[in-house]
């Protein structure tokens, strides 16, 4: 009887540790494993959507990017921190500065910690190649804040209290072939933190 209780307790502890670590990896770790690439604050994995994806990559993508296309069609970069490595929070203002990217279409979209779009009074969730207002050099500046200023804003949805963590996803559709061959050589937008409420 005592042995059965011990075995039962040991089994439960194993299940807790085993499934708990699965949850932690899927929810908290990044895509920096096999095929992982970081460009400034942006990270991706060349194996997203691919048959050859490592089990961890496939599990993370299933949880945080289900039905993602493979690299030949779309590259997904994700940023959970600014260019200095500080986590993105909804009560701060960020300036995203970018240059033209050799791709058919791109977009930058803000997601909450639950991986869904964030409710905001402006009803704006992204800026994209076809919506962004450009500078004379074809570059662009996007302000990410609760009340963004300028023509290219992405609201964080912050109203009061403590800020919430959020992330930005940069989608690159139909990246030019030579650019897709070396994703680490891409010049991607910087994310500079400004004032916080």
């Amino acid at each position: 009887m005592k042995l059965a209780l011990k075995l039962g307790a040991a089994f439960l502890v194993s299940v807790f540790l085993g499934l708990g670590s699965v949850y932690w990896f899927v929810e908290k770790s990044d895509l920096s494993g096999t095929g992982g690439i970081a460009v400034g604050p942006w990270t991706t994995n060349e194996k997203i959507g691919d048959v050859d994806a490592a089990p961890y990559t496939r599990a993370i993508v299933a949880r945080r990017g289900l039905l993602a296309l493979n690299k030949r069609e779309t590259v997904y970069f994700n940023a959970e921190a600014d260019s200095s490595g500080t986590p993105l929070v909804s009560n701060c203002r960020y300036t995203v500065t970018g240059k033209p990217i050799p791709t058919g279409w791109w977009s930058i979209t803000l997601y909450g910690a639950d991986h869904y779009l964030v409710d905001n009074p402006q009803g704006i969730f992204s800026q994209a190649k076809n919506t962004v207002t450009r500078n004379a050099d074809q570059g662009y500046v996007i302000q990410v804040a609760s009340a963004p200023e300028g023509p290219n804003g992405i609201p964080t949805g912050y109203s009061d209290g403590e800020g919430e963590r959020f992330s930005l996803t940069l989608r690159l559709y139909n990246l030019e072939e030579n650019a897709a061959e070396d994703l680490s050589a891409l010049v991607l937008p910087s994310i500079e933190k400004g004032d916080c409420q």
Binding site: A10, F11, V13, S14, V15, L17, G18, L19, S21, V22, F25, V26, P55, Y56, R58, A59, A62, R63
Partner: peptide
């Protein structure tokens, strides 16, 4: 316990 936890972890990652 740790061995079983690792086995459950691997099965879990593949199953997700």
């Amino acid at each position: 316990i740790l061995t079983l936890a690792v086995i459950i972890h691997i099965i879990g990652i593949f199953a997700v």
